[in-house]
Design a protein around this nucleic acid. Sequence first.
DNA 1: CGGAAGATCCACT
DNA 2: GTGGATCTTCCGA
Length: 207
Amino acid sequence: MSSWKPLPVSFYRRPAETVARELLGRWLVRETGGERLALRLVETEAYLGAPDAASHAAGGRRTRRNESLYLPGGYAYVYFVYGMHFCLNAVTGRREVGSAVLIRAGEPVAGEETMRRRRGLADRRPPVRPGDVAGGPGKLCQALGVDRVLDAAPLYRGGLKIVEGEPVPAAAVASGPRVGVDYAGEAALWPLRFAERGNPHVSRPRP
DNA sequence: CGGAAGATCCACT
DNA sequence: GTGGATCTTCCGA
């Protein structure tokens, strides 16, 4: 039985790459309206802050939108993209660093019916396939009801938490280039995307 | 003040 | 594989 104990703040106050690897297998828990939803995390990406051209904090860039990225590790950075999607990050490292981990995919472990309904998948034909519910950063936020209200929220208590679960062994972690950051030059090639090897809920292309 | 782009997703060919 | 949806945010003029 996995533990539902929240990961401590100290877990997040380390390099983004380390946190990204070690978040795999943990459970992202959303408690709202008296219901508990949970996803087992299977895919993450690290964003390193100022030295990383793919990061919203590249070159120390600072705006109203990315302000929460400069919080200390252990808080959520939620942003709106493409006019219709939200993405959830866990801020990492010390305050003012601007590094974070993008939560890209999870597999449902509690409240799947509610997540399907939020995703518009209830009663769908053909049947729902792995990855339809939370196999991508936008899908994951929609399934859990994560939006800008949760920007800057703590991840160790409250309605959105990450709990211990069971870490994925290093040998079962695949890595590759991050998705959707072709504009970032050389940084686009850095292998900062991590996923559980062979897990069907991982978004495509698989690393 | 206008334009462009975006850490995505979906439907369609 | 391709293109459209959709709109906030940011930057340059």
